[in-house]
Simulated scan of single mutants.
Amino acid sequence: MLKEVAADTNIIVYLMIIVGVIGVLAKVINQITLRRLVKAAGSMSKSTHKLIKLVRAKYEHACMAHDSVENTDAFVEKYIFEYRGFLFRIHTWRQLELQAIWFSGILAALGASAHYLSYGFNESVFQYIAAGAAEMVFLFVIRQLSDEPYKINAAKIYMVDYLENICSCRYKKQKTPEKEAINVIAADSTAKMAPVREESDAAPAESGVPAKAEPNLSINIEGEPRDVKKGEEVRQSVRRTMKEKLEEQGEPALKEEAIRQILEEFLA
């Protein structure tokens, strides 16, 4: 049934026309999008293009967060691939151009096959083959009229050049005075805090409150321990001398005087 519908009607011809229009439309939209993008990237500092404004804002934010962007090429490519010119991304429109070429050839082959199976080898088969080949060549030539990879690369180079050689240097120059100002403020604050610390350290001494003396934990290891036996011998010798003098002097007054002399000698 489908074979008879394809052979008796011109539905395949209409489908081929629709595919051709889609291919041409994708080429026109992509061409306009890339031309605007390249023009905006060429004057990136003054451009109001939405992609250029987005890339500038994201790059400045990345520089503020990380001081610099390590791979600027990948940073720019990411936003170019995600950019939607009209409904679809640039890559999607390029794929529609390529797929339109292949679908026109496939539809022409189907129409020729349907006519051949229904009516045999006749003039309509040649017409489908010729129309399909002509449409494929036409779409291929239109696709090659403008070098789209070159335009994408040119827009990328303009953007990378501006970000690395102009925007990055300008941001570094603006950030250097800020760092110097921060260092000066930090130095002033430390200089102001130093006298306050000295006053706080000297306050206990001026107020008359005695500072806590540190415990003297030093140990005199040079001294020798007392000889207990030697002390006992000295006491016994003193007692013996006292007894001998008392025996020699029998009077009590003399005894007291003798005891006093002995004590003085002992204490001396």
Rank of each mutant, 00 (worst) to 15 (best):
M1L: 09
A6H: 02
A6E: 05
I12K: 01
V13M: 09
G20N: 02
I22Y: 05
V24P: 00
L25Q: 10
L25I: 14
I32G: 12
A41N: 14
A41H: 04
T48V: 04
K50E: 15
L54N: 08
V55F: 08
A57Y: 10
Y59T: 11
C63A: 10
C63I: 13
E70G: 05
T72P: 00
I80T: 01
F86N: 03
F88N: 02
R89S: 15
T92F: 13
Q95A: 05
L96E: 03
W102E: 09
G105L: 02
L107Q: 01
A109W: 13
L110D: 07
Y116L: 03
A130T: 12
G132T: 00
G132D: 12
A134G: 06
F140C: 02
Q144W: 03
K151Y: 08
A154N: 00
I157S: 06
Y158K: 05
V160H: 03
V160A: 03
E164F: 06
N165R: 05
N165S: 10
Y171F: 14
Q174F: 04
K175H: 06
I182F: 12
N183V: 06
A186K: 12
T190V: 09
A191F: 07
A194F: 09
A194T: 05
A202E: 13
A205N: 09
S207T: 14
V209W: 06
E214L: 14
N216T: 05
E222N: 10
G223P: 09
R226E: 08
K229F: 01
G231D: 15
E232H: 11
E233A: 10
E233Y: 09
K243N: 11
K243S: 13
K245G: 11
L246V: 02
Q249P: 02
R260S: 10
Q261R: 06
L263A: 11
F266W: 07
L267Y: 08
